[in-house]
Amino acid sequence: MKNNFCCRLSDGIGGLNVINHVKLLSMALLAAGLLAGCHTGSVNTVERAEPVARRQLIVDKRISHDPFLKQKLGIVAVNQATTPAGLLQIQVEILNRTSSYMRFNYQFEWFDANGMRVSTPASTWVTTQLEGGESKFLTGVAPTPACQDFRLKLIKSIN
C-alpha cells in the first residue's frame, strides 16, 4: 500500500517534471522565435579609412526634451557648405544607436541675420527611417541667400 502510494507519488512528480520541461522548452522556443522576428539585422558599412573630403564642421547646441529619442538617435556631426547659388547648406549626420528599425520626423527652420524665422514651403516635417546601426545625412538648403542660421527639429514618428 505504502509502495503503491510512493510509486504513484514518484510518477506524479516525474509527470510534473516532464510537464515543466515541456513548458520550459516551449517558452524558450517562443522567446527564440520572437527574438528572431524582432531582430531584423543592423547595417554594416565600409568606407575610405582617410576620407579625401574635409567637412566644414560647426559647433552646435543641442536641446533635448525627449531623453528616449536622444538615447536612440545620435547626432554625429553637423557641417555646412555654400551652394553655387550662394545659399547656406546644412548637413546633419544622424545615427541609429539601437539595433532596431526606427522612424522619426525632422524639420529644418531657417533664420535671417536678425534672427527672424524665414517662412518657406520647403520647411516642412519630413518622415524618414533608419535601420539598426544605420547613419544618414539630413540635408537642408536655405530658402534665401539672406538665411544665416538654422535649427533642426527631431521628433519620434507616430505613423
Binding site: T83, P84, A85, P121, A122, S123, T124, T139, V141, P143
Partner: peptide
C-alpha cells in the same frame, strides 16, 4: 516639394 526645392536651389 521640400526635396525638389532643396535639389533645385542647390543645383
Amino acid at each position: 516639394a521640400e526635396a525638389m526645392i532643396n535639389s533645385l536651389l542647390a543645383s
